[in-house]
Design a binder for these strands. Structure first.
Length: 775
DNA sequence: AAGGGCGCACTTTTGA
DNA sequence: TCAAAAGTGCGC
């Protein structure tokens, strides 16, 4: 019988003594299914050194005792950098041999291995399976114990992804939130019991699980039982990968329980990209979604809800970890904490529902399962997409690189005309790098070696850097990018005929966004030393061509009589003169084969002397703040707020008098101690392990202190601190956010090193001097 | 265990 | 006292 299934999760397994993958999903009737597929045996490709004969190498390998788990070897035609090659396909009897042998063979016999892929990835690539999408194969029912699904099958034909299989089935979604309380520092599984777990489901269930006293086994039992009964397809949490799952797993172990939430009753386990995997379900961590929202400076669930303007955003408040212990000591405090946890789960579910379309579409496009796609870095998403595309065209997949990398020249920024300008248009090249890569066929397989002699008319010669690329045939990057660009164009067209607010529209919109992100990431990917298709020359040529395009367009703009006040990479700020701009747009299209658009129009725009920092007033009255302290997460709120008000006043008002008054008022408030401590907090990220720092930076000193006090701090964490009164260097006057009393604050520092510099950055352009800020 | 590129502004520490 | 180095976070 035929089975159509929506794919949620894939893992390795075994069936009748053969390696298989387990495909977890839902069928067209909405039943939960598990399909075992044994069609593909684990394999990789091996290309022996050039002088050896394939047949004899094959014989030798089959006899080699070191490679006892080689099941068979065939000789196949594949392409390496577009060139037809005959390679050995090494089929192994178990999946782990692929990783081992693909490294050992080149070491023992020379040559190179390709397509060293884990079996689930192999399946996704070879069969174009669609994660978060529909697939199809012939199946036979089987009896399988130890799994909680409606149907179990074995695939009798190879499963295939079906392009547009229609809308997804109704998926069950559960959000969970864990309350942990510690006397000092971060909660630790060894001595801090789970105080409560709240869940909320898409079916409207909202529960709070607790235990009496310090024994949390009832809480855990209730949670495990609920998950089993509700049987969600998607489990969502906040910081669940890093904190909640490891904590719950450890707590369960301590009470001799198994956190058997998987559809095979296994426990959550951490996997490749630092994500947690729950067999048969998709585990999603909203903090990974928050990480992708750069406007969000402090990544809390509360702040995401507010950012998304969810109706329920007002219901949620963040209770800091260090406040929990005292609250927990009183009955009313406990009540507050538990209620807060429950609210978290309800709002969390709404956040999940509002944001999940994007990860699902990104998963469908890249082939990375839903639980991996948001934790995987941009480079790995591109990697995954490329692996699928490579298989389609028969191209060998190179191993991941650990090549030494070389830096290269990037884009041009021209210094802005300082001050305020009226009526400015911002012109942007649309997808500049991707289009240049397509236009000039920039790709590893079209790159001409420096010593190779080719007729001039058969290659593109890149300005400035001199690299050459064959005009024909289409290179790998051109093929991949063209497909991405075309798909996106098609969706954009479809969107025009749909009404917004419909589900279909939203899903397509997110798909379009996912395609755009992948498209734009290709340039950076080419210049990333860790990429499978790392080719510095491609990235270097893209930036060289970009410099040329922007320079030429700028020159043309000037010759048309436009005033150019600033330019960065692929954007040009010009006087907003419609007719001249239209001429320029046409010229760019014709002469540069690129598209340039009016991206924004400013009625007024302000520049300091610096590049990459400005503020522009749009026609609708909103202001874009770019690069300035206002948008930086490492300045105190008070400094950012004052600068923002100053800029509003400058761009919307008439004189600087009002702006000066704003600063004076703020400084007065500050000096009188009326500014709440929360507005004085400075946050900086730990970008490396604490012991690796070579200087005593303020946030690192605070981090050291916090670690001593029992807080878990790791790379990527933000350290929140204040500056307090004292002597000596700044790093001696820093204290953790939660330990500062208002009277200890070093007001002078905030006046002289926060508010004044932020305000003066703007005001000094108008001849205001610092003394004028004194009252 | 990892976690796209380069260009730029700016603050603070360091070391002579 | 001063320039260089370290460090962070931004723009595109």
């Amino acid at each position: 019988m035929k089975c159509r299934f929506y794919l949620l999760d894939i893992n390795e397994g075994e069936w009748e003594g053969k390696p298989c993958v387990r495909l977890w999903g839902l069928n067209a009737q909405g039943q939960r299914v598990l399909i075992l597929a044994t069609q593909i045996m684990p394999y990789f490709y091996y290309l022996p050194s050039t002088d050896s004969d394939l047949d004899s190498v094959r014989e030798r390998l089959l006899d080699d005792k070191r490679f006892g788990r080689v099941a068979s070897i065939t000789i196949e035609p594949r392409k390496r950098l577009g060139k037809e090659q005959r390679v050995l396909r090494i089929v192994c009897s178990d999946p782990s041999a692929v990783t081992k042998y693909s490294e050992q063979m080149p070491r023992a016999l020379g040559g190179t291995s390709y397509d060293d892929l884990r079996l689930p990835v192999r399946y996704v690539a070879d069969l174009m399976l669609t994660t978060c999408g529909w697939n199809e194969c012939e199946v036979e029912p089987i009896d399988l114990h130890g799994v909680a699904v409606d149907k179990t099958y074995v695939a009798t034909t190879a499963p295939r992804g079906i392009g547009d299989g229609g809308p997804p089935p109704k998926l069950r979604c559960l959000f969970f939130s864990v309350l942990a309380v510690a006397e000092k520092g971060s909660a630790k599984a060894e001595h801090d019991p789970v105080r409560g777990i709240a869940i909320a489901t898409d079916s409207g269930r909202s529960e709070l699980f607790t235990s009496a006293g310090d024994d949390d086994s009832q809480t855990l039992d209730l949670f495990i039982t609920f998950v089993k009964e509700y049987d969600p397809d998607i489990i969502v949490g906040f910081e669940s990968n890093r904190l909640e799952w490891p904590y719950l797993t450890q707590r369960s172990k301590l009470s001799k329980k198994k956190l058997a939430v998987g559809r095979d009753f296994s426990e959550p386990h951490s996997s490749v990209y630092g994500h947690v995997s729950i067999t048969g379900r998709a585990n999603l961590d909203l903090s990974d979604i928050a990480a992708g929202i750069s406007e969000l400076k402090v990544k809390t669930l509360e702040n995401i809800a507010k950012y998304l303007r969810l109706p329920s955003a007002d219901k949620i408040t963040t209770i800091d970890e260090w406040d929990r212990y005292l609250l927990w000591a009183t009955a009313s405090g406990r009540d507050q904490l538990l209620k807060n946890t429950k609210t978290n789960s309800q709002v969390g579910l709404e956040v999940a529902e509002a944001t999940i379309d994007y990860p699902m579409q990104l998963s469908a496009i890249t082939g990375l399962p839903l639980d991996q796609v948001m934790t995987a870095a941009v480079g790995f998403r591109v990697d995954s997409y490329f692996v699928r595309q490579a298989h389609e065209i028969g191209e060998l997949v190179p191993a991941k690189n650990e090549l030494p990398f070389l830096t290269y020249r990037g884009a041009i920024v021209i210094e802005p005309e300082t001050g305020v300008h009226a009526n400015i248009a911002v012109l942007d090249f649309a997808s500049m790098y991707p289009k240049l890569m397509v236009n000039y066929n920039l790709s590893p397989d079209t790159l001409v070696k420096p010593d190779e002699i080719l007729p001039e008319e058969s290659v593109y010669v890149i300005p400035d850097v001199g690299h050459r690329f064959r005009r024909e045939p289409d290179g790998f990057y051109r093929i991949v990018l063209t497909s991405l660009i075309d798909q996106r164009a098609r969706i954009k067209k479809d969107l025009e005929n749909l009404t917004s607010h419909t589900t279909v529209f939203q899903v397509l919109k997110e798909r379009e966004r996912a395609l755009k992100v992948i498209t734009n990431a290709c340039y950076g990917y080419a210049g990333w030393a860790g990429a499978r298709w790392y080719v510095r020359e491609v990235a270097e040529s893209a930036t060289a061509l970009g410099r040329e395009a922007t320079t030429k367009a700028t020159k043309k703009a000037k010759s048309l009589g436009l005033k150019v006040i600033y330019s960065d990479t692929d954007s040009i700020f010009v006087s907003n003169e419609k007719a001249k701009i239209d001429d320029l747009l046409l010229w760019v299209e014709k002469e540069l084969d690129l598209e340039i658009k009016i991206e924004r129009e400013y009625t007024r725009v302000f520049f300091t002397e610096a590049m990459k920092r400005y503020a522009g007033l749009r026609k609708d009255g909103t202001i874009d703040f770019v690069g300035l302290e206002v948008v930086r997460g490492d300045w105190s709120d008070i400094a950012r707020l004052v600068q923002e008000q100053v800029l509003v006043s400058i761009l919307k008002g008439q004189s600087t008098k009002e702006a000066i008054e704003i600063v004076r008022r703020a400084l007065k408030q500050l000096r009188e101690g009326h500014v709440p401590i929360a507005n004085l907090v400075i946050r900086k990220t730990l970008t490396k392990p604490i012991e690796d720092y070579r200087v005593r930076a303020p946030h690192v000193e605070v981090a050291k202190q916090l670690v001593k006090e029992g807080w878990h701090l790791t790379v990527g964490d933000k350290v929140a601190y204040l500056i307090v009164k004292g002597r000596g260097s700044l790093f001696k006057k820093t204290r953790p956010y939660n330990q500062v009393k208002p009277e200890d604050v070093d007001v002078d520092y905030y006046v002289e090193n926060q508010v004044k510099p932020a305000a003066m950055r703007v005001l000094e352009r108008f001849g205001v001097n610092e003394r004028q800020l004194l009252v």
